[in-house]
């Protein structure tokens, strides 16, 4: 048997509860790869996508129980083998999470992408200190995405309003409130943005730092990440993406390079005078979605 835990039922005899919910979790179902792009498709295109793209390509990235607890997952044909012989491990993030999330989040977290390491990594924390098992094993619907996870991390859970040590921080948090996400001020350096994904031909990536309107939370300014779906990404599969302009080319993101002090916390003028890193007409990708324009924050002064 190649991947004994590919079917969580193999683990269910001892871990019935988790095995049951895991089968409907995002790591197992990869439903996010379906729901994230679906609004670009007509009903017919969605059917084609599910059969010809999602099941044939995206689904291959699902994580079995063993991929996180026995053997490092295989990524692009490469894996690190068994983590502790044939012993099961509760966690070993650098050999599990880091492989599938090694393009963006993990190297940003450790500073290996070229920026500053996340302050939580600096303090010795790792992935599951924030992303609890209940989040990773959560049972979700087939149309779910990672934002629908009920038990996802929240900065305020550990850093509630009012717990700030300085008056400056208290005032800054009170002034910006829900209008500005935590990451808009506390993401410290560039993170990876991917562009121009053509089916089977990969994407190109480059460091970016973009601030704009949150596409999923209108009225909030946050950090944005360029996602690689372009107009002809699914052309070879016969999908024209009739509703391509329904979604922007940026999603809200939390770069995992959080620092207490950044250019923005040190200097209000970074945003309020220079508007540094804010998305502008010039910063929009060529031939991109019309929806991108909604993400350009309009300063009222």
């Amino acid at each position: 048997m190649k991947r004994p835990s590919d079917d969580p039922a193999s683990c269910a005899s001892c871990h019935g509860g988790i095995a049951k919910t895991y089968k409907l979790s995002l790591h197992y179902s990869t439903a996010g790869m379906k729901s994230g792009v679906r609004p670009r498709f007509s009903a017919a295109e969605a059917k084609t996508y599910d059969a010809a793209v999602f099941e044939q390509s995206c689904r291959s990235c699902h994580a079995s129980c063993g991929d996180c607890h026995v053997k490092s997952p295989v990524v692009s044909g490469v894996n690190l083998g068994l983590m502790a012989g044939h012993k099961f491990v509760r966690k070993d993030e650098s050999k599990t999470c880091a492989l599938c999330h090694g393009g963006r989040v993990y190297p940003e977290f450790t500073g290996e992408y070229g920026g500053n390491p996340d302050v939580h990594y600096q303090k010795g924390m790792s992935c599951v200190d924030c992303h609890k098992g209940s989040e990773l094993h959560a049972s979700l619907g087939a149309q779910a995405d990672r934002r629908s996870v009920p038990d996802k991390p929240s900065c305020a859970a550990c850093h509630p309003a009012g717990s700030e040590k300085t008056d400056k921080a208290k005032e800054a948090h009170a002034d910006h409130g829900d209008k500005v996400s935590c990451s808009a001020c506390h993401a410290s350096s560039s993170y990876r943005g991917c562009a121009s994904c053509h089916l089977g031909e990969g994407a190109t990536s480059s460091p970016q730092f973009v601030i704009g309107e949150n596409p999923r939370k209108p009225g909030q300014i946050t950090t944005l990440r360029l996602v690689p779906t372009v107009r002809d990404t699914f052309k070879k599969a016969g999908i024209a993406q009739g509703n391509y302009d329904a979604l922007p080319n940026f999603w809200d993101t939390v770069p995992h390079n959080t620092r207490k002090r950044t250019d923005r916390t040190r200097d209000c003028g970074s945003c309020h005078a220079e508007q540094a890193n804010f998305l502008s007409e010039e910063g929009l990708p060529s031939g991109g979605s019309e929806a991108n324009k909604r993400l350009i924050f309009k300063f009222s002064y």
Partner: peptide, 11 residues
Amino acid sequence: SSVLGSTIYVA
């Protein structure tokens, strides 16, 4: 004590 080098030589 654990200290990350990249907090002492920073980008």
